[in-house]
Design a protein around this nucleic acid. Sequence first.
DNA 1: CACTCGATGACAGTTGCTGACATCAGCCTA
DNA 2: TAGGCTGATGTCAGCAACTGTCATCGAGTG
Lengths: 188, 188
Amino acid sequence: MPRWESGSRERLQQAALELFETRGFDGVTVAEIAAAAGLTERTFFRYFADKREVLFAGQDDFERQFLTALAGAPDGDPMTIATAALAGGAAFLPAERRPWSRARQRVVDAHPALRERELLKLSALAAALTRALTERGVGPVPAALAAESAVTVFRTAFAAWIADGEERPFGEVQAGVLAELHSLVGRR
Amino acid sequence: MPRWESGSRERLQQAALELFETRGFDGVTVAEIAAAAGLTERTFFRYFADKREVLFAGQDDFERQFLTALAGAPDGDPMTIATAALAGGAAFLPAERRPWSRARQRVVDAHPALRERELLKLSALAAALTRALTERGVGPVPAALAAESAVTVFRTAFAAWIADGEERPFGEVQAGVLAELHSLVGRR
DNA sequence: CACTCGATGACAGTTGCTGACATCAGCCTA
DNA sequence: TAGGCTGATGTCAGCAACTGTCATCGAGTG
């Protein structure tokens, strides 16, 4: 019999999301989240660097999906390689996850501090993609542009996928957004 | 004779930047910044919503420059309109400002909390451009893509303009980055 | 059985940030 | 010119986020 229930991290995450949904990010203290998970405030901070981070864990896996997809892409022009990474991200967003994503995003959108953190995570993803591209011999500016554009497509597609009434799977939405980007920027 | 020296806001900003440069963002307390400006901590928070914000004031003027440039652009495809906004931003970055921009960016890049705030500001800019485009009749997805792409060009150009050894004026750097984006994404 | 290890608790301390109220120079007005 | 108003600032108390440090204790290990 373990001295403590296992899965502390997951319990903290779930408790935090539920509390934030009902009372808002500012209306909940870390001590309350910890108590709801049967732990203390100090333990919360052993799992998460700060209060916001509890909503953004698992980002590493996410980033890795993009990177492995990119690594598996054949050589070609930078934008095509970056586009290949997008397919990896789609695996993270099956249809079952859409309701959860909607709920979570409502919480994030409701507080600038959480939007900040989300932007930082996406920026880190773009930086990782940029690095991977430069390591394949792409120049720094084209690498940055291709990576940022790919992340923009992902972000825009995610927003559309989350929107009320949208029913298509994520990959399909994302493909549509990507096509729009090409037709928009392709024009001279 | 005024009871207090005028320009409290500017004094706070300058004191903060100098202290952050030498001792790092975490190594300086708000009380110290205020004291260096001859004020109290409480007054600091009357000028700036939080400790980070002292480095990001004047963002409104910045955004307005982009928006007025966009408003003055003739109708056309969304990316061309968004591109016109970029010219407005360039006015904010004359050659004299480059050393200051370099110093400031070193401070911002050195701390994730400051990078977060910078990303939030750029995101707000993209949102404003998106709104302006939709108000001109552009659909939501194309508007978002064009606005985000324009901001990406600006951000990438800024990084290049700041880089060691770069001597060209901002507008020239930005034009080059924009051309690269077109050639990258334009390919099918 | 003693020993170590890892997850947790307990506790004190710093700092960011806020609300409430006081102060005081300069201006306006009667 | 007295008196009141205003706006910028100071003072103080307090909460909550976050950190360092040490204690606790169940579980595996030899």
